[in-house]
């Protein structure tokens, strides 16, 4: 009843009471709340980073890939071969960060078709699988070495561990389609060494540069085979080791007049079991 009477009387509102002095408890509460909010914010930032690493970088990479593919198509149409070699042994069209050809792996799906970029530093690998500068070029005697991301950045080599002995890895250049076969055929085991001392797949520590030698893991040996080497991180999300897959050239098919896929290469997709 008393309250009702109070409400009915239209008195000017009383000035707000002075804030009571903060007690020790208030200070502790404010501090704890601050710490709590900071921790939650930190957690959200880490989660956002995962989203960035897995999805946003992939989006960036696909944009770069589209550009690379476009450039390569334009060059081919204009009769420019990125891998052109002059009589003095130099490659005038080979430029860091630019496309040199495409890599296709039937085992990893019909849509696995990546432009390979020249160079294997971070900025180049952001665009797609990158050719180690100085290693052999597609179809050459020696070791055509390519690095690719396994997580994020389009994750071209995410499923590199799915490859089996004899699986084809196809590299398309302006001149030809090179069909490499994953090694491990002789032993019918991908991790055992073939007769030439090179396995189909191996895991090496991150500081082991052996896979890049002209004859992988055999420094000083002169190459006789035409090999391809694919490197990526292992295990996923880790920098501790590298997974390496080796293949040997099995077939060279001349490029078609309109740069479409030759029937022989199309047939390879039917062989994936």
């Amino acid at each position: 009843m008393g309250q009702h009477t109070w409400g009915a009387v239209m008195e000017p509102p009383a000035p707000p009471p002075e804030k009571p002095a903060k007690s020790v408890g208030d200070h502790i509460r404010t501090t704890l709340r601050g710490i709590g909010q900071t921790l939650i914010t930190g957690g959200l930032v880490v989660l956002l980073f995962v989203v960035y690493e897995v999805y946003v970088t992939t989006w960036f990479t696909h944009r770069e890939q589209t550009k690379l593919k476009h450039e390569i198509t334009k060059e081919y149409a204009a009769g420019i071969d990125p891998l052109l070699q002059l009589p003095d042994g130099s490659y005038p069209n080979l430029k860091l960060g630019e496309g040199i050809g495409n890599i296709l792996i039937p085992r990893l799906g019909r849509d696995f078709d990546w432009a390979i970029v020249e160079g294997s530093s971070d900025s180049q690998l952001d665009k797609g699988p990158g050719h180690y500068v100085g290693t052999a070029l597609p179809g050459e005697v020696g070791n055509f070495a390519v690095a690719g991301h396994r997580v994020g950045k389009g994750e071209p080599f995410l499923n590199l561990d799915h490859l089996k002995p004899g699986d084809t890895v196809i590299v398309e250049t302006e001149k030809a389609w090179f069909v490499y076969k994953v090694k491990g055929l002789d032993n019918n085991s991908i991790s055992k060494k073939d007769d030439d001392g090179i396995p189909g797949r191996e895991i090496v520590s991150s500081d082991d540069g052996g896979p890049l030698y002209p004859v992988p893991d055999h420094p000083g040996l002169a190459p006789t085979e035409k090999l391809i080497t694919l490197t990526t991180c292992h295990p996923k999300f880790s920098a501790s080791h590298r997974m390496i897959v080796y293949g040997v050239l099995a077939q060279k098919i001349p490029q078609t007049a309109d740069f479409s896929m030759p029937e022989t290469v199309k047939a390879l997709y039917g062989q994936v079991s």
Binding site: L48, V56, Y132, A147, G148, V151, V204, G209, C233, R242
Partner: peptide, 29 residues
């Protein structure tokens, strides 16, 4: 804030994290 993180901060920080190194070092021949 999200855009700042995604397009500026993360791209700068990411190469320094031991997450995504896919290359092996080059040996001197």
């Amino acid at each position: 804030v999200v855009a700042l993180l995604m397009f500026v901060v993360f791209p700068i920080v990411e190469p320094h994290l031991p997450l995504n190194q896919v290359t092996v070092p080059k040996q001197h021949k």
